[in-house]
Structure formats: structure tokens, C-alpha cells
Design a binder for these strands. Structure first.
Length: 465
RNA sequence: GGCCCCAUCGUCUAGCGGUCCAGGACGUCGCCCUUUCACGGCGAAAACACGGGUUCGAGUCCCGUUGGGGUCACCA
């Protein structure tokens, strides 16, 4: 069975956006398939009509594309296979692997509550399990006749050998009273029909694996290899949820301003490691990824580390690409882009996210008079305003407006004024950018150009000058 | 509560019986570079949950305790 070509799948239910945990599951499946030269399939589990939305489907596909997780062939939609699911349930009924259960929901809750009261574990004990004849006209569900003796063992590729007593597995429902298939049935049938060989998913499904195996065995189908990956937890150690800002990947892109390669790299390293390697390209990941090195304990999500990684990828990214991304955020016109590209080498070492990058670039495009923030304003004292006037006078005479001439001129003014360079550079920065931090002041002058620079300086000069 | 799983620095992790007085990364704190802020460089503090075994030898194997997580629907 391990000689079968590898087929993995990602099977999200489109009830919300592609969240970060799902993205990691998808990444692991994708990586595993690519590593083995197999196929990676995508199946949308849209059987819950009430909660599934087209918007969510789009968000999932969009998120996967953004992360570079391409799937083979078209995407599957589980709801299209209802008839097939129902057919399997009926075949199990005929072979005696399942039965019609006429218990009402009320009877069931009654039993459940009784068990609760007596503080004993609840196990479905249907009186219909061994009754074959139909109760004409009465509603029923089809339940699996789960094994009651012995135990079931799963050799999970990440969890190891897990054993569960069959007595723990109850007669769960295959087909609801309205004839619709349950998730448990649908997953198994679809995975089988799609030829899935490796089921890699969150370990919140580990318990389900035993139930699903019961169906697989009843049908005599080949058993997939299971790999249950620990869930991602929030900073407090509990399962990542909306409460922790478990955002959709679209938020990581749009609101947080992260690059897909950073998110992918971070997710890869969360729960998986390859020696001391931290920065791992997609190519290396495909080459190195394996299930053996997936950790068994849940890991906590660390935004700081993600952000740092993103900073690394920003510094590594192409200036033109970064400029496009920032231009969109700032709503710039095409003719403003060249300046942004030119400034990018000075801008990008100062940012860990595109939000910060865009913020650091605004001074290039704001129009006079500038908004001067509090820190910058405190730098514009009477003395420094006089210094700015001196600098303005000197700079206005400059024949060449390049970094070298600019530096020489500014240093000269500082010296003539008997102050250290910083005493002049800081007010200059305040006047030119309205901020206390920016790229080097000579670069700022050069980037802004003669006319704009002189005008901004003049705006902040001593009034009586 | 039943069942299942997990347990190395604050966090992500390396470690697959000796080469570990435990390595890397993020974060934190110093120093250097420097007109600011970053980037970069150097350095520091920081962990094998606890208790029993097994073994010549245990972070690495076994058992227990404690702690954490997951799961117990006519949801997926």
C-alpha cells in the first residue's frame, strides 16, 4: 500500500475564511505531495448548506493561491456526491454492516441525560441494532454497526501507534433521517473515490479516524496512511480561535501586511523543523519536508517571530514588487512609483511589515505644509530653526544636488554653526519628513529633490529670517 | 467526567543512550557601527515539569504524578 503513488488532499469546509491552522494543514499536504511527486487535491466540504457560502469558497481558493499552494485538477465539491454517499450507506445496510435506527432524538437525549446523571459514560445502545424489518412510514437514520469487541490500532505517521478499545466507538450515524450523509461517511467515501493515500489533518480528527476506519473496513477499502498534526494554539495555550485573532490569511496579507513567503516559512517551522534551519525556501521545503519531523505537541502562535521573518523577506524582496505593494496601499499613481522604487533600498531595512513600509514612505508623497508629529515638533526649537535657515541658504547655492555634495554642504553648515552634525540633521529630518525617524538625511534630501527639500525647510525656518 | 494525545530556554525548535555542565532562531538585555530609526556585527541572561525505575551511563527507554491539549451531535 505504501507503493501507491502519493495522493493527499486538503478538505476545508467553507463556513468561514481560510484560517491560519487550515493554511498550515494545506501547506503540509501540499509539501508532502510535492516531495513525493504525487498529487495534491482540493475538496470543498460544502455539505452543510446552511453554513457554506460562495464567499467563503472564494476566500479559501484565493488564500491558497496567495500562499502558492496549487492543487491538481479541478476542486471537488462534496455536495455533488450525495447520491454516491447514500448509495454506500445502503450497501452497508444490505451487507449487514449498518442498520436502521428508529430511535427519536428525544429518546436519545433522554438516554444521554440519564447517563450524565448517573455519571457513567454514554454509549449509544440502540434497540434496533439487530432488528432487520422496516417500520413502515416511520423516520429512521442509518447507523453503522460498530465493532464492540477488541481494539483498533492506527499507526499514525506523527502520533505514533494509537490504540482505542472498540467498545469506545459507538454506532454513529451514516445517513440522517432526511437521507443526507454525515461528515463521517462523506469523508471516507470521497477520500476513497479520489484515491487519497495519505490523510494529513489536524489532530482534532484523531478520534474520528477510528470511526472512519470502521467504515473503510466494512467496505473492504484500502486504508489510508494517517498523519494527525497537532493544532496551533494561541499565546495562552488554548486552541487558536477568533478570540486570539485567528484571522483568515487574507487578513495576514491585507491588514497585517505580510508577504506570502514569510507566512509560508513561519507555518512550516511551526511544528516542524529541519536541524537549525530557519529561513527555508519553498524549493528546499519540498526537498526536505517529511512527516517524521513533525512534532507531536501543539505549538503556540508567535506574531513576533512571524513579523521578524517577514522583515527578512521584505529586505530580500525585489524593490519593484515592494513598490507595487506599497503603492496600492498608499493609493499612489503610476508616475509616483519611480520615486518609491528609488527610495526602496533605504526604506525596506526599516520595516517588518508592508504596513510599516508604507508608513515609512508617506513623507515622499505628502504635500506641504507637512503634518509634523509631536516628537519632530519638539526638535524645531528657535535655535534649530536658525540652523535650518543657514542650511537653506547653503543648500540653495548648491550646483549639484547629489548625496555627496549634500553631505559636504550639510556638514559645512553644522561646522560653521559650531554644532555636531546631529544637531542639524535632526531638525532637518523633522522639517523634511515631519517625523523623528527616516532614512539617512542625505538620502532624504536627494530623494525629495532640490525644490521640494528647500520648500519644506523654508516652511520650518525662523519666521523673521 | 470517559477516551485519546502531549511535556527541552518566555515562544518556535535541535537532540533519535555516551561527542549535552544541552545547540539554533524569535523575544529580552548589554556593547559596536551611526545624524535618527532600522539593518548589520559581537556578547549575556534564559530550558531538559516532578518522582521512581532500566542501564556502566538517560534530555534521550519504561512506569507513575502533575500540568496542558483534543474529543465525546441527525456540525464539519
Amino acid at each position: 500500500m505504501s507503493s501507491r503513488p502519493v495522493v493527499t488532499r486538503f478538505a476545508p469546509s467553507p463556513t468561514g475564511f481560510l484560517h491560519i491552522g487550515g493554511a498550515r494543514t494545506a501547506l503540509f499536504n501540499w509539501l508532502f505531495a510535492r516531495h513525493h511527486g504525487g498529487k495534491f487535491l482540493l475538496r470543498i466540504e460544502d455539505t452543510d448548506k446552511a453554513r457554506s457560502t460562495g464567499e467563503a469558497i472564494d476566500a479559501i481558493l484565493d488564500g491558497m493561491r496567495w500562499l502558492g499552494l496549487d492543487w491538481d485538477g479541478h476542486e471537488y465539491y462534496q455536495s455533488q456526491f450525495w447520491a454516491r454517499h447514500a448509495d454506500i450507506a445502503h450497501r452497508m445496510l444490505e451487507s449487514g454492516a449498518a442498520y436502521r435506527c428508529y430511535m427519536t432524538p428525544e429518546e436519545l437525549t433522554g438516554q444521554r441525560e440519564a447517563a450524565q446523571r448517573e455519571r457513567r459514560p454514554f454509549r449509544i445502545d440502540s434497540p434496533w441494532r439487530d432488528i432487520a424489518e422496516e417500520q413502515a412510514g416511520k423516520p429512521f437514520v442509518i447507523r453503522i454497526k460498530a465493532p464492540r469487541e477488541g481494539e483498533t490500532v492506527i499507526d499514525d505517521r506523527v502520533q505514533g501507534r494509537v490504540t482505542v478499545q472498540n467498545a469506545e466507538i459507538d454506532d454513529f450515524i451514516l445517513l440522517r433521517s432526511d437521507g443526507s450523509p454525515t461528515y463521517m461517511l462523506a469523508v471516507v467515501v470521497d477520500d476513497h473515490d479520489m484515491g487519497v493515500t495519505h490523510v494529513i489533518r489536524g489532530d482534532d480528527h484523531l478520534n474520528n479516524a477510528f470511526r472512519q476506519l470502521a467504515i473503510i473496513r466494512a467496505m473492504g477499502w484500502p486504508e489510508p496512511v494517517y498523519a494527525h498534526v497537532p493544532l496551533i494554539h494561541g499565546p495562552d495555550g488554548a486552541k487558536l480561535s477568533k478570540r486570539h485573532g485567528a484571522l483568515g490569511v487574507d487578513s495576514y496579507r491585507d491588514e497585517l501586511g505580510l508577504l506570502p513567503e514569510a507566512v509560508g516559512n513561519y507555518l512550516l517551522r511551526l511544528g516542524w523543523g529541519h536541524g537549525d534551519d530557519e529561513i527555508i525556501s519553498r524549493e528546499q521545503a519540498v526537498q526536505w519536508f517529511d512527516l517524521d519531523h513533525v512534532g507531536k505537541s501543539p505549538s503556540r502562535f508567535d506574531f513576533k517571530k512571524l513579523e521578524n521573518l517577514n522583515g527578512h523577506y521584505i529586505r530580500e524582496a525585489d524593490d519593484g514588487r515592494l513598490a507595487d505593494l506599497v503603492a496600492t496601499r498608499l493609493g499612489l499613481t503610476d508616475d509616483q512609483k519611480p520615486l518609491l522604487v528609488e527610495a526602496m533600498p533605504e526604506l525596506k531595512p526599516r520595516a517588518n511589515t508592508l504596513v510599516q513600509l508604507a508608513d515609512g514612505a508617506v513623507f515622499l508623497f505628502t504635500t506641504r505644509p507637512l503634518d509634523v508629529d509631536e516628537g519632530a515638533a519638539s526638535l524645531l526649537t528657535t535655535d534649530s530653526r536658525a540652523l535650518l535657515a543657514a542650511a537653506h541658504g547653503k543648500l540653495a547655492t548648491l550646483a549639484e544636488w547629489d548625496a555627496a555634495s549634500l553631505e559636504a554642504a550639510v556638514r559645512e553648515v553644522a561646522e560653521a554653526g559650531g554644532v555636531k552634525l546631529g544637531k542639524l540633521a535632526q531638525p532637518l529630518r523633522a522639517a523634511l519628513t515631519g517625523r523623528t525617524t527616516s532614512p539617512g538625511i542625505f538620502d532624504v534630501l536627494a530623494l525629495l529633490g532640490r525644490e521640494e527639500s528647500l520648500a519644506r525647510i523654508a516652511d520650518q525656518m525662523e519666521p523673521n529670517e
